[in-house]
Design a binder for these strands. Structure first.
Lengths: 222, 222
DNA sequence: AGCGCGGAGTCCTCAGACAAGTAGAGGGGT
DNA sequence: ACCCCTCTACTTGTCTGAGGACTCCGCGCT
């Protein structure tokens, strides 16, 4: 019986290739036959094969290198990271955040460009003046911390920080709602000092200030 | 500086489209301009636009329906970690590893149980005696470092470390294959000292030893 | 042995053509 | 006024052919 909607050939070809990869026909790191071979073999044109390969490349299963060939880079799809963070306790998430952000603060102090520093200072100012809803305040806080990680110019650290944001945001909003927040005045002071350490290109100071601020946050949450 | 010149046009186009999606130019469920419009707009041919769209479709960001158009299906782009790490340079990965592992080493020194300490020492011994193939040596090294993160009893840090392992393993094997490794003797000494700091419940020493060891590794790779 | 140079194989990009499908405008019937 | 049908413009799907760029490997040279 015919499906209600026929899948495009490129999608079918992608599924077929994925099935053959999962079956072990090509090992991890192995090279696939060339597009010109794969085309007739699957009964589709070359551009269709290319689109199927692109699709799997987007899913992280394949990688094509010009002049060399197409290679298998993964055998199955990894579990979703968001699920891990949701399952984990907020303390464990904060501990990872401390690791990432303290390191990022040190790199930020080393590598900050004038533009990045301006962005940090601007977000610091916005953070100070954010006195609306709890959500607005938390969002402003997150933007400040993110600006620092951006200044660190370390793509993986930034990627990690971003993946933490939703979980952290939720926890901080809850914390403030039940009034467990720290004193606003000294909290702001801590942020100012951190920004100054980055401005002054002092990696160790930035690392320590970032860590001590986040550790006190962790204690407030625990 | 123009290392990105190596990236295929289709990949660049995909990144560009993703950036525009993230910027909110097209809302969730919105229809993108047609391929024939997007092509000249991005300065690439229609086939290239199609491959970029396929790539994003594989990542779950876009969906194309024949005759209707291409639509945005997700904004958050819950990107798979494997894909991120594969795309990122090894230096950026190591920087994140330093952040995670130095912090884990400190927690390990604080929280280690006798069992966890035994596991660390056992893997250290196995690491020392692993003199077979390069793969065996790297695997033994990874097991040692993992034992430390396990001893830290921080689930998220462990989860992060595990997600880094495949990428790190590949890079280290490559490095050793081309003979860029550090001296085996002092390398082993550094690991012994780290294990001793954890045994002696000295978080700051563990943090520093872990960091300095990994920084030298980073320098060797760069 | 080491080095440089091709050449074969491979992926990358473009252009054009036609097929297949969708959505909306417009006309005709009730 | 309402419904339905058709027709048309637009969009994506697929194939083909042609170069261009890149990688890898072996060959010949020193």
């Amino acid at each position: 019986m015919e499906q209600l909607r026929r899948a495009p050939l490129a999608d079918q070809a992608a599924e077929l290739l994925l099935a053959r990869i999962r079956s072990g026909e090509w090992a991890l790191g192995a090279k696939l036959p060339g597009e010109t071979t794969l085309g007739p073999q699957l009964g589709v044109g070359r551009s269709t094969v290319r689109e199927a390969i692109r699709q799997l490349a987007g899913r992280g299963v394949l990688e094509s290198r010009q002049g060399a060939g197409v290679f298998v880079t993964a055998l199955d799809v990894a579990e979703e990271w968001d699920a891990v963070l949701r399952r984990a306790g907020i303390i464990a998430v904060i501990e990872a955040r401390i690791a990432i952000e303290a390191e990022a603060a040190a790199y930020a102090a080393e590598r900050r460009t004038p533009q990045a520093l301006r962005a940090v200072r601007r977000s610091l100012e916005e953070r100070r003046s954010a006195q609306g809803s709890i959500e607005d305040y938390v969002d402003a806080d997150m933007r400040f911390h993110r600006a620092i990680v951006v200044a660190a110019e370390s793509p993986v650290l930034l990627e990690l920080f971003d993946s933490f944001v939703p979980r952290l945001r939720q926890a901080m909003v809850e914390m403030l709602r039940i009034g467990r927040g720290v004193a606003a005045e000294e909290d702001h002071e801590a942020h100012v000092h951190l920004a100054e350490a980055i401005a002054g290109r002092d990696p160790e100071a930035a690392r320590l200030l970032s860590r001590s601020h986040l550790v006190s946050l962790k204690d407030a949450l625990g």
